[in-house]
């Protein structure tokens, strides 16, 4: 209930504090995600095995076409940029063509710009190739991907492709067939915490333990989000604590949800419903609530079978919400079923 009050507090604080803290310390406005973007393989957090492999390749120079697939904020683009920087060194500018989703990447661009670049001659040391970086390939139209396929092969003597995407299955088969696929997984909470701490120290950010915890929780394995949240909290409030973080990232407060789940386990439907009702009245969408319930549930320290049973029920509800039934009735139904599961598993 304390948390509730924190949530309820009006927002005069943020308007005051940025004037005091924001002006004094930081003259540079570079986003931290850019400022602390890793420049070498050693700095990249997470997916050590893959990055080490890539660092070996970067040393040798013969990089096959690769697709790096993985969720957002795990360092796909960073890896590719590192790779290109190490492979090409000073001629990075001339020998790298980077296109991301904000560029026009229609069929014509593929057929003209990319092909032209592939045909272009750049003097490079032996064994190095030009690199075409296509970020977010899965957002390319399939036609454009189709147009890419033969280019990837024919000019492989001089040009290599490094693609990054979230879902490799959205890349057409033909392209997948021409690439070695590397998969990145989400970063662990520990990795994110470590990096966040590093940044905090470098930026002289005041922080409280639970603040960082909150950051890690909201990030969910997404380093970009973690750093963004950290920065915006710092800019807004000056100090990183849980309350501030959740003010910045307006989510249903996990403490509330944890309370709710606990009361479900204990079989107290009323209390659980009260919390959900409160969240609902605060105006959160069913989608948001269920998402956070899942997140909290996943990280909760409860009996494993029970957790899985809970997750299954949450999944059912989520399915319904996706179907369009985002009403409070569904949420209360979820609570009821959770309670039943808790009772059943206990017996």
């Amino acid at each position: 209930m304390e948390a509730m009050e924190i949530d309820d507090t009006p927002q005069p604080g943020p308007s005051k504090e940025p004037t005091t803290s924001g002006t004094g310390k930081k003259p540079d406005n570079l986003p931290w995600i850019e400022k602390y973007r890793p420049q070498t393989f050693q700095e990249i957090v997470g997916n050590e095995d893959t990055t080490k492999r890539l660092s070996v390749i970067a040393k040798q120079g013969n990089l096959p076409n690769v697709i790096i697939a993985g969720p957002p904020g795990v360092g796909k683009t960073t890896t590719i940029l590192c790779l290109a920087r190490i492979l090409l060194g000073p001629s990075f500018k001339e020998a790298v063509l980077e296109l991301n989703a904000s560029n026009d990447r229609g069929i014509d661009v593929v057929r003209n710009k990319i092909k032209m670049f592939a045909q272009q001659k750049v003097t490079l040391p032996a064994g190095r190739h030009k690199i075409i970086i296509l970020d977010e390939v899965d957002s390319m139209t399939e036609g454009a991907q189709q147009a890419l396929r033969r280019t990837m092969e024919i000019y492989s003597n001089t040009t290599r492709f490094a693609l990054a995407c979230n879902y490799s299955e959205k890349v057409i088969e033909a392209i997948q067939s021409r690439c070695a696929i590397l998969r990145y997984s989400r970063l662990t909470d520990a990795q994110i915490l470590a990096r966040t701490l590093q940044v905090c120290q470098k930026e002289n950010v005041e922080y409280v333990e639970d603040g960082l915890e909150a950051i890690v929780f909201t990030a969910q394995g997404d380093m970009r989000q973690a750093l963004n949240n950290l920065q915006s909290t710092y800019n807004g409030f000056g100090i990183i604590n849980a309350a501030n973080v959740f003010k910045v990232c307006d989510e249903p407060h996990p403490m509330l949800i944890k309370d709710m789940l606990n009361s479900c386990i204990s079989g107290d439907v009323r209390k659980a419903y009260k919390i959900v009702d409160h969240l609902w009245n605060l105006g959160y969408a069913a989608e948001d609530i269920i998402k956070n319930i899942f997140k909290v549930c996943k990280n909760m320290d409860i009996d494993e079978p029970l957790k899985l049973a809970f997750i299954k029920q949450i999944g059912v509800t989520h399915m319904r919400i996706v179907d369009g039934l985002c009403s409070l009735v569904q949420m209360s139904g979820l609570i009821a079923r959770l309670c039943m599961e808790a009772q059943g598993v206990k017996k």
Partner: peptide, 19 residues
């Protein structure tokens, strides 16, 4: 890889050349 020789070869290359 469903019998895709190209993909297999590329993956092997990546694997082998990365040590």
């Amino acid at each position: 890889n469903r019998g895709d020789i190209r993909r297999t070869l590329l993956q092997l290359q990546l694997f082998v050349s990365s040590g």
